[in-house]
């Protein structure tokens, strides 16, 4: 266990010295700046509509606007978190072994499982802190722009962070088998597949199609980052009701399904299984 902080530090230093963090910081600032501009404009526009007389008395325009904007921010945050998770982990095993970076480390009395676990810890810590920070900033911006705060804050923050951790774990597992480029492509395709299945579920809800809903549900269990994202998305407007809730359901970021009580234990089990598979495969791999 003495080696864990050494490898974690090595992984973080790698990101720092390769200027990964600097680039992420700059792009995140750009994203949040654009989001602030868009949020301000959207709330002002809705306010102007309201001054001319409400379209529907029963719709809470501030909640509809705020939840939609923060839903959009959640999508953007998860995407940025996924990019960070993938780039921190895509080459950890096979990619680094092909470049000759891994062998000098593996022959040290560290243990392959410790090495893989430490790289996961480093990536998970960075991604979860990053995603939580960006989401908190987006929620703050939404409040600043229109005075709206999500119905639940801690739960979606934690779920979004956990979703990024699941992506990091999948990417780390993929790095045992695939070269860096192939792994990056595979994980982004899985990420895309998860999001598409979520949208299919929303369409299924709207059309009352049991088959589409079942497909979406199965995909969410297979790729729990999607279920976590959906659960977090539904939590930000969990207390809305009536026409406001109906209007939210019709939007691209409003028809999310709550994951239910099995989501957290399933995510933990999923992470444990992915970790176990990665450790087993890595310990048997010739380098």
């Amino acid at each position: 266990m003495r080696a864990v902080p050494v490898i974690v530090r090595y992984a973080l230093e790698e990101s720092l010295r390769r200027r990964v963090f600097l680039i992420v910081l700059i792009l995140t600032a750009a994203f949040l700046g654009l989001f602030a501009l868009g949020a301000r404009e959207a709330f002002q526009e809705v306010e102007r509509f309201g001054a001319e007389g409400p379209l529907f008395d029963a719709v809470d325009e501030q909640t509809l606007t705020g939840a939609t904007l923060l839903g959009l921010a959640m999508f953007g945050t998860l995407f940025l978190g996924a990019v960070l998770a993938v780039f921190l982990t895509l080459a950890v095993v096979r990619g680094d072994a092909e470049r000759g970076l891994l062998q000098p480390l593996v022959v040290r009395p560290v243990g392959r499982v410790t090495l893989l676990g430490s790289r996961f810890l480093a990536a998970a810590a960075v991604c979860s802190v990053y995603v939580a920070g960006v989401f908190a900033a987006a929620a703050g911006i939404t409040y600043w722009a229109g005075g709206w705060w999500p119905d639940r804050f801690a739960q979606p923050t934690a779920e979004l962070a956990a979703a990024a951790v699941v992506i990091a774990a999948l990417s780390l597992l993929g790095s045992v088998f695939l070269s860096a480029t192939a792994n990056g492509i595979a994980i982004f395709m899985l990420f895309g597949a998860g999001l598409v299945s979520g949208l299919l579920g929303q369409i299924g809800e709207a059309l009352a199609s049991e088959r589409l809903i079942d497909v979406s549900r199965a995909a969410s269990w297979a790729l729990p980052f999607e279920a976590l994202y959906q659960d977090g998305l539904s939590a930000i407007s969990s207390e809305s009701f009536g026409l406001t809730s109906e209007a939210l359901q019709l939007g691209p970021f409003g028809g999310a399904q709550a994951g239910g009580p099995a989501l957290v234990p399933w995510t933990l089990t999923y992470l444990a299984v992915v970790g176990l598979l990665g450790a087993l495969a890595f310990s048997r791999r010739d380098l």
Partner: peptide
Amino acid sequence: EARRSLGYLAELFRFPGW
């Protein structure tokens, strides 16, 4: 225990450039 007793230089290796 075995790895604790050896030093190794690989044919193809690289150290982090930074």
